[in-house]
Write a protein that binds this DNA or RNA. Structure first.
Lengths: 157, 157
DNA sequence: ACCAATTTGGTCAAACAAGGTCAGACGCGT
DNA sequence: ACGCGTCTGACCTTGTTTGACCAAATTGGT
């Protein structure tokens, strides 16, 4: 525990914990100056430490008045589930593989069955039969997006 | 939230919300003076934040007694976010339209800013530059799925 | 009525102010 | 010597702000 990235990480987490809102807002330039490093270092920290898998969402804006905002998700994400999503969903996926993945996530307790139903509805809903190749590509993207959202979101009451 | 444009935007929205009529009326020069900026800055704010896509209509008049009037398109007293998603997201959607929709949902209180950040992360993350046409189609599907999920599953209290 | 001056707002391109990317250098542990 | 995580710098993209110049209404003098 001693790299610059680690220090920047803890600094941001400190701000996040002590700040009044559920998020931190910083400027890349300013942060880089504070730690005397290249601005792109900040991006490195963001992309290695403040990822969705680790329970953060980052929002940025360029131009005058630009900023970097980091939100902490409410719950610890299901990391094993997320891992599985990354491994299983490639550039395209067929229906059966998608269903299997959802089932496996339910099995391992990462998804409850109501959420699973929502995922199925979202993914299979708008499918068309034309161009199965294209459908596979779209299915992969929708599935990944929807699952990531679900796995980083606390279950409903 | 730091740029001048942001401040002008919130000022106008404040006037809209607190004012007695369903619209605000201001003078470009006067507004520019209040915020100590070039008058054309006001046009920039209008054209980037008070567009029809974001639910506003602007009417102006030149000459003596000229004015700028901003109307809020009030979505009928229960145009739900869900309904809006269906109306706005067709077979394909470009990035700007997607941003506008998200902004509008935030504006109407259907999404808070953390949820909006999650949606953006899910929708814009895995985009590629190749084949913008295809991206538009995929974006529409992902956006619809993700928004439906979010709106169907409001943050718990 | 007519026209010129005046008072508004509109446009557009250029300058400015962020942040993003990516290939490669660096450095430390094995 | 190798590999992996860090770190940097040159170059890129996007959003904001300004200023010079344009167009439309109104006003007031004739």
């Amino acid at each position: 525990m001693g790299s610059l990235s680690d220090y920047i990480e803890s600094y941001l987490k400190l701000l996040l914990d002590t700040g009044p809102h559920g998020f931190v807002e910083v400027q890349r330039r300013e942060l880089a100056e504070r730690f005397r490093c290249a601005p792109s270092q900040i991006n490195y920290v963001l992309s290695t430490r403040f990822t969705v898998e680790r329970g953060y969402v980052v929002e940025t804006r360029r131009g005058g008045g630009g900023y970097i905002r980091i939100f902490k998700l409410d719950d610890e994400p299901e990391t094993s589930g997320i891992q599985m999503v990354y491994e299983s969903v490639g550039d395209a996926i067929d229906r059966k593989a998608a269903e299997d993945l959802i089932a496996r996530l339910v099995d391992m307790g990462a998804l409850d069955c109501k959420d699973a139903a929502c995922v199925r509805a979202a993914v299979f809903d708008q499918e068309s039969d034309e161009d199965p190749e294209l459908e596979g590509i779209i299915r992969a993207r929708v599935l990944r997006a929807v699952l990531m959202l679900m796995l980083t979101r606390p279950p409903m009451e």
